[in-house]
Structures are given as structure tokens and as C-alpha cells.
Design a protein around this nucleic acid. Structure first.
Lengths: 206, 206
DNA sequence: GCCAATATTGCGAGTCGCTGTCATTATACA
DNA sequence: TGTATAATGACAGCGACTCGCAATATTGGC
């Protein structure tokens, strides 16, 4: 699953590849154990055992037990792909293209893992709470790259509003998508972003 | 401070009074220690020591360390006073009267403790997160009593909307009130509820 | 006022998430 | 090949929280 993280790049050294493999293994085994026994009933030590690392190493990769679920392996890819979009595209247009690229090129097991993460986060109150923080973090991150493309500052009012709207569409899609598959989720997200890009024309003329 | 909890009532037995006193002592000492040393730097054992009970007893009164801050000693009084309001009043009117009664009759140290709780919850991310749950819980509770007064079901659409609006006014007031005193907070909350009760007339005619 | 049923408490051992330290091992680089 | 550097595992320890149990306090009936 982790070879996805290395495609089309100068190929990092052995150390970096090992680290990526360990991180992926920890998350995979964690999600599997959570599915089999439940989130609370699974201990960090068990995850570390399954991934064949020491418990201390677990915390070197994920600061808390929650983070092993919250961490999105596709995030770095999305970020990179977004920055590579042609300058002619609008921010929302660039994001839509980015999502099509990254999710379109992702193998099925990666998408399945995204579904599992989403469902688990939704089901466990502790994780759902933390997700709010993640959304806030996403906004700041996204604001930076949007600002860079637009030649504005990240705290620019328009940048902030746009970023808020985009993340808002993401939240709304996520909340209304419990249990549905990644393909559904992505389609609805894209539709929502299309609406946003066009200024919600279908809502103006009833 | 806890005699407030016993005014004008058939007077519960010794056991109940002791329990109320222990609960109040735990919360008082906890808030004091948090103020002096900070929330994280204070341990539950220290709170228990200060209140002269065993650590296990602490957890019998408050299921988590967070709850000793979140617990609002005035809640039961508010509930009782609300249910005693004359049936002629609208739900919002009854709530305003309730708040005037309860907070108006509360001694200064109780109000000061409310301020301290509000500031602490706002300052500690962990508590701020949990506060969302508390708001949700408040809505359900409030929906029950409003429904009872109105002769409707708690999941009635109008009941839900009203309850949501009221709690929303509370949140907005709280968020905009960092550091201000209880009297300010209560005044603004009452103004907000008045606006709500009247349908926000000042916003309709610019 | 006494006694039995019951509720509350303190105690101790234990689990789990998480932190910090240190010696050992593996990778990178020159 | 040797050396700086980074990652790892083992260990000790802290704090929140749980559980079971014996001791103690309150209550209600007599």
C-alpha cells in the first residue's frame, strides 16, 4: 500500500522508506484490530506487537492513540498535487482536479482504508471530537497554499472565507455520508465543490 | 456555599447533606488548585487530599477530572425554578424569569465560581471540547421540560428549534464574554433572549 | 435507644495511555 | 572503512481511572 507514496519522485533513501513502511504498518494493523475488537478494547501495546515494533516506537510515529486513526496518508499527496495544478485554475477548480488525480490514482485498498477511518471517527466520540481540531488544522494548511497561488496573505479575508467554505462542504459531505463508500463520498464532494465554484446557482432560482 | 442548595425545601437527611457538602468541597478545592497551579499541573490526588477524602471518593462524585470543572452546581436549581414558573409565560419568558430568580438570589461567591469555571473551560482545550457535549446534553434536558410545559413531545420540531436557538444564544454569549463578569454575562444573555423572544425586531428594520 | 439493612468510604492492586532516559543498532555520508 | 547521526528497544515512572473488599456511617423499623 505504501508504494503509492513513492511513485514519481526522486526516491528517498532507505531510512525514509523504512519509516514510511513502519508508519503504514502501524496504521493498517491498528485499523484492523479496531475493526476486530473495537477501539477501546484494543491496546497500544497490541498494535505495536502486531506491527512488530516496540510500544515506544508507536508513540514516536503517532503522538496519541487517536492519531493513528486521524492521520490521513493521502494528505501529503493531496498537498503536493494541489501545488502542481496549473495557475489558470481557480482555487476550487484546482482542488477538484487535485482530488480527481489523487483519488483516481489510488488503489482500492487505500480507498477502503479511507472509508474505514471515516466510519471509525464517526463512531467513536473521542475521535469525533478530535476531528474538529483536524478540520481547523486543515483550514490553516489549505489557507497557506491557496494564498500562495493567489498571491495573497493566508489571513486575507477572501482566502479565509473560501477555505472555510471548502472545509464546510467537506464536513457536510462527511456528516451526510455515514457508511457510504469512498466513490459516493467523492462524487458528492465534487458536486458540492462544483456548486460552490458556481455560486450555488440551483439555489438562486427556485 | 452549599446551604444555597438546601433553602426552601423539605430538608434532606444527613446523608444527602453530607454528600452535597463533599461534592461542593471537591469542586471548590479543585478550582482553587487549578487557579493556583494550573489544570494539568494539578493531580486528582491533590484535589482529594485538599478536600480530605480518598482519591477513589473523588471518582465517585465526578467520573473524570474534567467533570469537576464542568459540573454546574446551579443546574438543579435552574431546572426546579423553571418548572415552577407560571404556565402563562412563554418558554423563553419562563427561562428569563428563572435566570433572574436563581442568579439574583445567588450569593457573590457562587457567581464568582461560575466566572472561574467559564474562564477555565474556555482556556483549556480539553474542557472546551467536552463543553460541546454538555451543550448537547443541556438541549436534551431543556427540551424535556419545555415539551412538558407546552404539552408537546420533546422531539417536536418546534421544541427542538426553540431549544437549539436558546442554547445557541447561550453559546454566543459565552464565546463573546471571555473574562467578563457574571453580571455582564447574565445581562447580555437576558438581552439575547429578549431579542429571541421578540423575533429579533431590531434586525428586521435597518 | 437498639438492631439490622443499606449506603458510603478508604484501601490496595492493577490497567492503560503516555513520557523520559539510555544503551544498542542501523543508516548515511565522507 | 570509519564516523557522525538517527532510529530503536528496554526500562522505569507518572497520572487518570477501575475494581473488589473490608470497615464505617446513616437510616428506618422496633
Amino acid at each position: 500500500m505504501d508504494q503509492l507514496l513513492e511513485t514519481d519522485r526522486p526516491r528517498p533513501g532507505l531510512r525514509e522508506r523504512k519509516k514510511a513502511r513502519t508508519r503504514a504498518a502501524l496504521q493498517e494493523h491498528a485499523l484492523r484490530l479496531f475493526r476486530e475488537r473495537g477501539y477501546e478494547a484494543t491496546t497500544v501495546d497490541e498494535i505495536a506487537d502486531a506491527a512488530e515494533v516496540s510500544p515506544s516506537t508507536f508513540f514516536r510515529y503517532f503522538p496519541t492513540k487517536e492519531d493513528v486513526v486521524l492521520y490521513d496518508a493521502l494528505d501529503p499527496l493531496l498537498l503536493e498535487a494541489f501545488e502542481a495544478q496549473p495557475a489558470g485554475l481557480s482555487p476550487v477548480g484546482a482542488l477538484r482536479a487535485t482530488m480527481r488525480e489523487v483519488f483516481g490514482g489510488a488503489p482500492a485498498d487505500v480507498l477502503a482504508q479511507q472509508d474505514e477511518r471515516a466510519a471509525l471517527i464517526f463512531a467513536v466520540p473521542e475521535l469525533r471530537m478530535r476531528m474538529l481540531d483536524e478540520f481547523a488544522r486543515s483550514m490553516l494548511l489549505f489557507a497557506d497554499v491557496v494564498a500562495k497561488r493567489a498571491g495573497r496573505r493566508p489571513d486575507d479575508l477572501a482566502v479565509r472565507a473560501l477555505v472555510g467554505a471548502v472545509v464546510g462542504v467537506g464536513i457536510a459531505t462527511w456528516v451526510n455520508a455515514r457508511g457510504s463508500q469512498a466513490s459516493d463520498y467523492l462524487r458528492r464532494m465534487d458536486e458540492g465543490l462544483a456548486e460552490l465554484e458556481a455560486g450555488f446557482p440551483t439555489l438562486s432560482r427556485p
